[in-house]
Structure formats: structure tokens, C-alpha cells
Design a protein around this nucleic acid. Structure first.
Lengths: 188, 188
DNA sequence: CCACTAACGCAACGATCAGTGCGATAATTT
DNA sequence: AAATTATCGCACTGATCGTTGCGTTAGTGG
């Protein structure tokens, strides 16, 4: 009975405001620099009163965390091609395509800059997806992989290129990354 | 003779102001959230008038870029242990130790969030250092490595863990990373 | 359909930010 | 040492931000 006095009300209007605000954040990050991303600016773009943003989110950091979490959660379908290599290649290619979008990158950068937990909000679901792929391979009777190590070798180079280097990471490059990673497993 | 009319003057006072401002940025990022990093706040901490910051840097984005560039340039000595494995292990362990510092991480996060070129400012010199190590191995008659690929497998997982995951990356883990990377080269 | 209340809009306020013009200081050159 | 001028400090101003109190709108349960 933890805090039963205040009941949430995610009805039509709140959901509509939330969607408009999320859309406004993505728009503003896509077109201008992250400097001008203030709560009044987002409110004006979303057609919502600034007070609403101050009350619901409080700061741009929490708003960005919310936007990034919902943006990078359940946005990709975990493939089931029948083999580990196929699943990983399909999935990482999708991730690479997603990360190659400049608007997506802008959201990631802003979220990372908003606080220590910003990065986690961007890749938390990716780790869940990778875990699902690995678990499925294990159920097939295949090799048991460590999720963290796989993330180091697959997501590591991909996100590193996206954030820290100007050169893009294509879907083909992601597939090559999976091949070389699986090759290292067969030859310890 | 491009713009010979305006000559820079990096004398004693300017250098002192610059150092104080850089120090103030690092301090503010270390203690509080990145939200409050405004030019007047930095000026107050540095004991400098806000107008100076508006004129010399113009925005927090450019200031952060300047701070990050000078912070992550010539801060590590490229080792020369006689072997590629030794050089890489020493160097990447140093990088890991540097990145493990919360204050360093805060500066990196803020710089990444300040603009598209933020990430490059943090690792540009790292690529130069890695290139120097690889070139030295080549001069020894050893294997010729591609700098970009090596960065993908060495810096990628390291910076990915630092920015996107809560678990730290120790110096020992970095050395293991080098070992596994070199192992993959011997077995193509 | 009605009562309840979470969520939003509105107006007003102090605080801080971003920018400008002008004089003072000090680095650099002759 | 004197002249030149890049750089900084100061005072001032308009704009924007962050916050609060109060009334209104609209989900939610009876």
C-alpha cells in the first residue's frame, strides 16, 4: 500500500501532452543545437504551457531521460532467424541503421550530457535484446555467451564510432563486426 | 596571409585567465550536475568577469570543446616497452585509469552533449597515440595494423563501458582486452 | 450521471542569463 | 621607454528562465 493516496491518471489528455512534448524534444534536438533545449522552448514547440513541463519533469535532464528511455525501448523486433549468426547480424544491422540517423544521434548525445544515467537509458533495452538472442541460442543447445562480453565487442565499437568519431557505421559494417566476433569464439 | 590584421596575444594574463576558467569548468562539472554550467557560473568560480567568457568563448559548447581538447591532449606518454603487446597494454591501462575517474567522465559527458564534435575532442589524441604505437611496431618489422580497426576493438569497448554502462572498466580489464585482441590477429 | 481530484492553463514575481558600449589594464612591438 | 592594441573589468539593459498561487478543465470511480 505504498502511497495509495496519489493515483496516477494516464488518460487521454496526459498521454497527448506527453506525446507532444516528446515529439517537440526530438524536433528541437534535430534542427538546432542542444544549447537551446530549455523547458520553455520545448513547451512552446509542443503547444503546452511551460508550467506543465516544470511540474511533470522538473528539469531537462529528467525530460531527456524519459524521452530517451521510451525512444530506445521496444523500437526493434528481436529477430529469430534460426541461427545465432543470423540473429546477431540482423539485430546489429538494425541497431547500426538506427544509430546512423543524425536525429537519433542528437538525442543520444543530449541524453548522455544530461547526467551520469543518460547513457544507460539509451542502451538498457539493447542489452535486454542481446540477452534474449543469447538465451534463445542457449535454448537451441548452442554455445552459452556472456551478455556483457558480447556487448563489449558488438555494441562497443558501434556506439564508439557513432559518438566519438565522425565516420559512420553502416549496416554492412555491423554484419562484418558480428562475423569477426563469432570467429574469435571458435578459435580460443 | 589570412587575417594578418588581428594578432593573437597569449601572454601572461590571458594564459592565467584561461587556466582559471578551465579549472573552474572542471570543478563545476565535478561537483554539481551539468545543468548549472553556465558562463556566469564559470566566471564566478574562476574569479573572472562574465563578459570575458562571452567574448572569448561565446557559448558553453565552445568552452567545453576547448577544455576537453586541452585536457585530453598530451596527457599520456606513449609507452615504448619494446613490444606491441607491452605498448598496447601499458597505454590502454593508462587510458582506462583516466576514464575511470568520475571527474573525467563528467567532462566527457558534458562535452559529448555540447555538440556533434564533442566526442572527437575527447579521443582525437587517443587515435594519434594509437597510431604512434602501431607505427613503431611497423618500424620494428612487426605486423602492420589498421588504426581504425584497432580503435574499434580497444577504445570501443572501453569508452562504451565508461559512457553507456554503470560498471567500471579497470586497468586489468583493459590489459585483458589487449590480450584477446592480439589473439584474434594470430588466428585469422 | 455525479462527485472527486489529478493534471493543465494562466498570471505574476524574482533571479539569472545574454549582450553592448566604454574606459582601464597590460602584452607586444618599435 | 613609448606607442599600439589585444584583452579584460565595469555598469547597464532587455530577454528568458525557474517558480508559486490560484482557477479551470477533464480523466476516473461510484
Amino acid at each position: 500500500m505504498a502511497d495509495s493516496s496519489t493515483q496516477v491518471r494516464p488518460g487521454g489528455r496526459s498521454a497527448k501532452v506527453r506525446a507532444a512534448v516528446h515529439h517537440a524534444v526530438a524536433e528541437l534536438l534535430a534542427e538546432e543545437e542542444a544549447e537551446t533545449l530549455t523547458l520553455p522552448a520545448v513547451a512552446a514547440r509542443a503547444g503546452v504551457h511551460p508550467t506543465t513541463l516544470y511540474r511533470r519533469w522538473g528539469s531537462t535532464a529528467q525530460l531527456l531521460n524519459d524521452v530517451a528511455t521510451s525512444r530506445f525501448t521496444d523500437d526493434l523486433v528481436v529477430p529469430d532467424s534460426g541461427s545465432l549468426a543470423g540473429d546477431l547480424q540482423r539485430w546489429l544491422a538494425d541497431v547500426a541503421t538506427d544509430v546512423a540517423d543524425p536525429d537519433t544521434l542528437a538525442l543520444m548525445r543530449a541524453t548522455i550530457g544530461s547526467g551520469p544515467a543518460g547513457g544507460c537509458a539509451c542502451v538498457e533495452d539493447r542489452h535486454r535484446q542481446l540477452g534474449a538472442i543469447i538465451r534463445r541460442e542457449q535454448d537451441r543447445g548452442g554455445t552459452a555467451l556472456d551478455v556483457e562480453t558480447a556487448a563489449d565487442f558488438l555494441l562497443g565499437p558501434l556506439y564508439y564510432r557513432a559518438i566519438f568519431t565522425p565516420e559512420p557505421a553502416s549496416a554492412d559494417w555491423a554484419r562484418t563486426l558480428v562475423s569477426t566476433y563469432l570467429a574469435t569464439l571458435r578459435t580460443p
